[in-house]
């Protein structure tokens, strides 16, 4: 059980998708970084956004607020947002305990997230 590492949020692109990757521990003090990265999707308008939580060791409900707001914004624009793992035990437990899994489109990996057909377009 190692000590926590401050959250890092990085952005990349893969096949017309914006991939936002969260590493380390994300909580109320660092959630704004994810919020900023996701607001970029709003401005640059990629085909889809993938939120990669595979390197996220710890997340509390602060991330849910950011993800839900981003999900809302994406739906309003008709753009697909996928949250992908593989999730750490803590992140999985967070979704579980808060009952929020069903609010998001989830995938097991970035690859799977990119392959997912967009329900809006079927592509």
């Amino acid at each position: 059980m190692s000590d926590g590492a401050e959250a890092t949020v990085t952005r990349g692109t893969a096949r017309d998708a914006l991939v936002v990757r969260v590493g380390g521990d994300i909580d109320h003090a660092s959630a704004f970084r994810l919020e900023e990265a996701l607001s970029l999707a709003h401005r640059t308008g990629p085909e889809r956004t993938v939120v990669d939580l595979s390197a996220t060791d710890f997340a509390d409900s602060s991330i849910l607020h950011v993800l839900l707001e981003a999900q809302r914004a994406h739906r309003a624009r008709g753009t697909l947002m996928v949250v992908c793992g593989p999730f750490s035990d803590i992140v999985r437990r967070l979704f579980d305990v808060t009952g929020t899994e069903g609010f998001f489109v989830l995938a097991d990996s970035v690859g799977a997230a990119l392959e997912l057909p967009d329900p809006a377009t079927g592509r």
């Binding site: 509390d60 437990r93 305990v97």
Partner: peptide, 22 residues
Amino acid sequence: RTGGPNPDAVIDLLLVVSELVT
């Protein structure tokens, strides 16, 4: 006390700690 029969319990503890302090 980091492992034991219920490692999920430590996860829950860390979540509670984080939420309370936040």
